[in-house]
Amino acid sequence: GIDPFTGEAIAKFNFNGDTQVEMSFRKGERITLLRQVDENWYEGRIPGTSRQGIFPITYVDVIKRPL
C-alpha cells in the first residue's frame, strides 16, 4: 500500500551513484522519498522496482516532502 509518510519527487537530472548505498536514476523518473538523511541527501526508492538508496537533494524536484 501507500505509506502516508513518504514523499515524492521527480528526477531533474541523471544521477549515477558511486557506491552501493547510492541509487542511480534517470531524468524524469518518479521517486518515492523515504526520509531526508541530512541537508544534502534523501533516501528513496523507485516504485515498482527493487532500487533503493540515497541521492543528492539537488538532483530532484520535490513534489511532497517525506514526514
Score class of each variant (00 low, 15 high):
residue 1 G to D: 13
residue 1 G to I: 13
residue 1 G to W: 10
residue 2 I to N: 15
residue 2 I to Q: 14
residue 2 I to H: 13
residue 2 I to P: 13
residue 3 D to E: 14
residue 3 D to Y: 12
residue 4 P to H: 14
residue 4 P to D: 15
residue 5 F to A: 11
residue 5 F to I: 09
residue 5 F to C: 15
residue 5 F to D: 12
residue 6 T to D: 10
residue 10 I to D: 02
residue 10 I to H: 04
residue 11 A to M: 01
residue 11 A to I: 02
residue 13 F to K: 11
residue 13 F to I: 09
residue 14 N to V: 05
residue 14 N to D: 15
residue 14 N to F: 05
residue 15 F to M: 01
residue 15 F to H: 05
residue 16 N to V: 13
residue 17 G to V: 04
residue 17 G to P: 06
residue 17 G to A: 14
residue 18 D to K: 14
residue 18 D to A: 15
residue 18 D to C: 15
residue 19 T to H: 11
residue 19 T to W: 06
residue 19 T to P: 06
residue 19 T to S: 12
residue 20 Q to L: 13
residue 20 Q to N: 12
residue 21 V to S: 13
residue 22 E to P: 02
residue 22 E to V: 05
residue 22 E to Q: 13
residue 22 E to L: 08
residue 23 M to F: 08
residue 23 M to N: 01
residue 23 M to Y: 01
residue 24 S to H: 05
residue 24 S to R: 05
residue 25 F to L: 06
residue 26 R to A: 11
residue 26 R to N: 09
residue 26 R to D: 08
residue 26 R to S: 12
residue 27 K to V: 12
residue 27 K to N: 04
residue 27 K to F: 06
residue 27 K to L: 07
residue 27 K to I: 12
residue 27 K to H: 08
residue 28 G to Q: 03
residue 28 G to S: 04
residue 29 E to W: 04
residue 29 E to L: 02
residue 30 R to A: 07
residue 30 R to M: 10
residue 30 R to I: 12
residue 31 I to H: 00
residue 31 I to N: 00
residue 32 T to P: 00
residue 32 T to H: 08
residue 32 T to M: 10
residue 34 L to F: 06
residue 34 L to H: 04
residue 34 L to K: 03
residue 34 L to S: 04
residue 35 R to L: 06
residue 35 R to V: 06
residue 35 R to N: 06
residue 35 R to K: 09
residue 36 Q to T: 06
residue 36 Q to D: 03
residue 36 Q to K: 10
residue 37 V to L: 12
residue 37 V to F: 07
residue 38 D to A: 09
residue 38 D to F: 08
residue 38 D to P: 02
residue 40 N to F: 14
residue 40 N to V: 14
residue 40 N to L: 14
residue 41 W to H: 11
residue 42 Y to G: 03
residue 43 E to I: 08
residue 43 E to R: 05
residue 43 E to C: 14
residue 43 E to L: 14
residue 44 G to L: 01
residue 44 G to M: 01
residue 45 R to H: 10
residue 45 R to Y: 13
residue 45 R to S: 11
residue 45 R to N: 08
residue 45 R to T: 10
residue 45 R to C: 14
residue 46 I to Q: 01
residue 47 P to K: 10
residue 48 G to R: 06
residue 49 T to L: 03
residue 50 S to N: 14
residue 50 S to P: 10
residue 51 R to K: 06
residue 51 R to S: 03
residue 52 Q to S: 09
residue 53 G to Q: 01
residue 54 I to A: 04
residue 54 I to Y: 09
residue 56 P to L: 07
residue 56 P to N: 03
residue 56 P to F: 02
residue 57 I to T: 09
residue 57 I to E: 08
residue 57 I to P: 04
residue 58 T to F: 13
residue 58 T to N: 11
residue 58 T to P: 08
residue 58 T to D: 13
residue 59 Y to F: 11
residue 59 Y to M: 12
residue 59 Y to L: 10
residue 59 Y to Q: 06
residue 60 V to T: 03
residue 61 D to G: 05
residue 61 D to A: 10
residue 65 R to K: 15
residue 65 R to M: 15
residue 65 R to N: 13
residue 65 R to Q: 15
residue 67 L to I: 15
residue 67 L to E: 15
